[in-house]
Design a protein around this nucleic acid. Structure first.
Length: 276
DNA sequence: AAGGTAACCTGACTGC
DNA sequence: TGCAGTCAGGTTACCT
């Protein structure tokens, strides 16, 4: 799944159901995620109240009385709220963790197990200082994010702009789909050296990132087959992509066939005429 | 320090 | 129908 829009949609979807609710227990059926789910999580969480659901990049931060549960959805993770306690679906093969509340269950599913469920105790300090969060770039919707920032942070770097966006240490939340889409919107070639892109073009790119991510959030997150809404229903409809997964199809602006290349082992799609 | 690559894992799809 | 090969929305760890 999940680029920033899907994570944000998940946050908004689950928050009203679980914020303020007391955790009855945690069922960890498969602890072997990207990193092991901490042993003893059940005993740790029992009786704590989940206070709020925040997001940093693609991480969901579940603020509890004694610390934070960090949840990353990896490539195929989903979080769903099961609220019909009278007809709870049995846990499937890939339903690895349940947080059980008095009136609902928050179920973590992740077929590929690239995701993570970790615990950061309040005694360990600010959760944003967690090693996985401390190196993250700025939030695309924060006041700190701008063309000026992109420009400043890429000076002297020869890396391709597509890979610089994806790396997440300058700006978070732009995954493989939206990297291609935002570069198309800004008219920038994905192989352009990040350090040689002008300030004016970075202004366009920053605006494209904000607009496209916001549009995707508004539509309920774009989705591939794995994404399931937080209420257990699939069927979010995705944005109409301009370039992603459209190899050989005519550009929606100029009709030139869309091209596919590989950068850093990831697919990139672009229009050779609109993007220079 | 920056840049490139391998690795984690399962499922869907394609072609023979 | 089966099997092998390829690809998939992410990110860290390790190498040069």
């Amino acid at each position: 799944m999940p680029e920033l829009p899907e994570v944000e949609v998940t946050r908004r979807g689950i928050s009203p159901h679980v914020a303020g609710q007391r955790i009855t227990r945690a069922d960890v059926r498969v602890p072997a995620l990207r990193w092991p789910v901490p042993p003893g999580l059940d005993a740790l969480l029992r009786g704590q109240t989940l206070r709020r659901v925040e997001r940093r990049g693609k991480y969901l931060l579940l603020g509890c009385d004694q610390g934070w549960l960090l949840v990353h959805l990896g490539m195929t993770g989903t979080l769903r709220v099961l609220s019909d306690v009278t007809a709870l679906p049995a846990a499937g093969k890939h339903d690895h963790v349940d947080l059980v509340f008095e009136r609902c269950i928050l179920r973590y599913r992740d077929p590929r197990r690239f995701g993570a469920v970790l615990w950061h105790p309040a005694t360990a300090g600010d959760v944003l200082h967690h090693p996985l969060l401390s190196t993250l770039g700025v939030e695309p919707f924060s006041d700190d994010f701008s063309g000026a920032l992109l420009h400043a942070r890429t000076r002297g770097r020869s890396v391709a702009i597509k890979q610089a966006l994806l790396a997440g240490d300058i700006v978070v939340g732009v995954g493989n789909i939206y990297a291609s889409e935002t570069l198309f919107r800004a008219g920038i070639h994905p192989r352009a050296a990040a350090g040689r892109i002008s300030r004016a073009r970075y202004d366009r790119l920053a605006q494209a990132i904000r607009e496209i991510l916001a549009a995707a959030i508004d539509k309920g997150g774009s989705t591939l087959r794995d994404f399931v809404g937080s209420d257990g229903q699939s069927g979010y409809f995705q944005l109409d992509y301009f370039v992603y997964d459209r190899t050989g199809k005519p550009c929606r602006v100029c009709e030139t066939p869309i091209r596919h290349i590989v950068q850093g082992q990831r697919s990139t799609f672009y229009c050779p005429r609109c993007q220079r």
